[in-house]
Amino acid sequence: MTPEDRTPDDKFVEISGLTKAYPNPYGDDVVVVSDFNLTIKRGEIVSLIGHSGCGKSTVLTMVAGLNATSGGGIVVDGREVAGPGPDRAVVFQAPCLLPWMTAFGNVLLGVRNVYPHADVEERRDMVEYCLEAVGLADAMHKRPCELSGGMQQRVGVARAIALKPKLLLLDEPFGRLDSLTRMQLQDVVLRTLDEHAITTMIVTHDVDEAVFMCDRVCMMTTGPNARVGRLLDIPFQRPRRRDEVIESPEYFELRAQLLEFLAAQEHATVASRADADDPQQCAAA
């Protein structure tokens, strides 16, 4: 790619007017996401935060191409997204490993498909490099059932970065892990992202995760008709150290802003959500 037709760094990913609606046979379409706009810079880590069911995962799967859009466009590095592909690697909430293959085999599956021109040696190097990068040098040839949840998710991350994606999509990648394992994995993933300057989009509902890992947090309103509620820049320099981040005075301020936004969304929702958990609130609605 020559420098001239290289996509401008500040508009590496452009999402404009993105809409997702599901047909409803008994009335108007259910609009989950409407008019979602977001621009991501090259190498930036952006997180989508919101309550569960707000449509943040829908946005991510549409960017991944796993879910068809109902309107609007997604452009990644100058190319319109139309269907899934390894240039937008996804790490799913569940590790989604193929249980009949070892960790190595799981990573190799994608590598083989994405680097058809590379020789066996190079592919093996790539797989080993990625597994080592996520701290699995000793567990390469184990099957998923022999790995803990955290280790399985590391394999998921290794599989994604081995594809050298233009955009890495993390869909609540640590949502099912306990807080300690989550911290470890955040460190590992952030280190890898820093090293290769991978443009990343993280869907999460964990405020600490968003503040610690991201350059920018995109707060989404609660659906239906979810859209970007607020954008918040996280000013910490990368690479980051967790202890320094926690000690910094802004940390709790940023955290508070996110929490307040979420709380406000919660109050907005409670009045409107039909399937609310609390029956009294449900009855009040």
Binding site: E80, G83, G85, P86, P116, H117, M126, Y129, E132
Partner: peptide, 24 residues
């Protein structure tokens, strides 16, 4: 204490480029 023993890989990421898939 748990992650400290994860020695950083001395390897470099292999310099191979992914193939470009045409839009499906």
């Amino acid at each position: 204490t748990q992650a400290g023993d994860e020695a950083r890989s001395r390897r470099r990421m292999p310099a191979i480029e992914p193939r470009v898939f045409e839009a499906a």
